[in-house]
């Protein structure tokens, strides 16, 4: 594969680093008690959201999962709005009503992270149906985990998307576990990509730690969808370096050796080394990006800390668009 242009490469690097630093900051302030509820971190999987969303326009749609901070950021939702939502503040992208698993930012095409495993697949197909019905060129990417690939939503969603030729790309983040349940134990056939054949669409398995591999596969699938040629299923083999949610040690169901092996394939150093070896960038340029990202994340934290709580008087408003 030819390397993309330097500005694309730098954007990919910056985005992955942003997702990583953001989540590290979330883990830190979570331990300080600043964030209520549950958070599921994206650490280790950054190449997936980054490589996929790099191809999306602002008007394209993304549907996401419980592990969705990375999808929101990569789709362009400002870090301040994502962070403030995790803090339960009125300035969050869902006004504090959603929290980590209910980030909504339609202005940026984010149709929601989700507290339920599976719906991102069919609701994503629905957004794609809508784009096709309305005659726009919008594409939808539906992210989901390996845990979702055994739900009815997966099978019904892929079937409908295929028979109706919807402009949607299904991106499975196969991090080999659904909480503690091993993908290999849970999945007949032990392959997500192979299931695409049953639904008469291309099924692609890619190395989810290699941002360029993801970028390439997603680029082809998104172009296909935009050209009206129908859906694609992409399985990204990846790994979460942390527990299922903050507070879960992430051990007991996977060995220390396995975690260590995968950590050697951290998508960020892998990509950085490649950029340096190929002499695409200098150490200084990378250091500059690192500083920018740190500042950006710190700004999101400061913004959240200074933001007001939502008013309790509003707790019962907005249940309906046209109130009773």
């Amino acid at each position: 594969m030819d390397l993309p242009d330097k500005d694309v490469l730098l954007a990919l690097y910056r985005q992955m680093l942003m997702l990583r630093r953001f989540e590290e900051a979330v883990a830190r302030v979570y331990r300080e008690g600043k964030i209520p509820g549950f958070v599921h971190l994206y650490i280790g999987e950054e190449a997936v959201a980054t490589g996929v969303c790099a191809h999306l326009e602002k008007t394209d749609y993304v549907t996401s999962t419980h592990r969705g901070h990375g999808h929101a950021l990569a789709k362009g939702v400002p870090a301040r709005q994502v962070m403030a939502e995790l803090w339960g503040r009125s300035t969050g992208c869902s006004g504090g009503r959603g929290g980590s698993m209910h980030l909504y930012a339609p202005e940026y095409g984010l149709l929601g992270t989700n507290g339920i495993v599976g719906p991102s697949i069919i609701n994503g197909a629905g957004a794609a149906f809508s784009a096709k019905y309305r005659g726009t060129s919008q594409v939808t990417v539906a992210f989901f985990g390996d845990g979702a690939n055994n739900t009815g939503s997966f099978h019904e969603g892929l079937n409908l998307a295929s028979i109706w030729k919807l402009p949607v790309v299904f991106v499975c983040e196969n991090n080999l576990y659904a909480t503690e349940m091993s993908f290999l134990k849970a999945t007949a056939g032990q392959s997500v990509a192979a299931r695409a054949a049953a639904y008469a669409m291309p099924g692609v398995a890619v190395d989810g730690q290699d941002v360029l591999a993801v970028y390439q596969a997603a680029g082809e699938a998104i172009a296909r969808a935009r050209a009206g040629e129908g859906p694609t299923l992409i399985e990204c083999r990846t790994y979460r370096f942390v527990g299922h949610h903050e507070g879960d040690p992430g051990t007991g169901y996977r060995t220390q050796e396995e975690v260590e092996e995968w950590r050697k394939r951290d998508p960020i150093p892998l990509f950085r080394d490649r950029l340096l070896t190929d002499k695409v960038v200098t150490q200084d340029e990378l250091a500059q990006i690192g500083d920018d990202v740190e500042a950006h994340v710190q700004d999101a934290i400061d913004f959240s800390a200074q933001s007001a709580w939502p008013s309790p008087q509003e707790a019962a408003t907005k249940v309906f668009a046209s109130p009773l």
Binding site: G126, S153, E156
Partner: peptide, 15 residues
């Protein structure tokens, strides 16, 4: 489940 879910996604996006 499938077509109700597709309908919800469509309703979220202008239909």
């Amino acid at each position: 489940l499938g077509f109700t879910g597709v309908a919800v996604g469509a309703a979220m996006t202008g239909l």
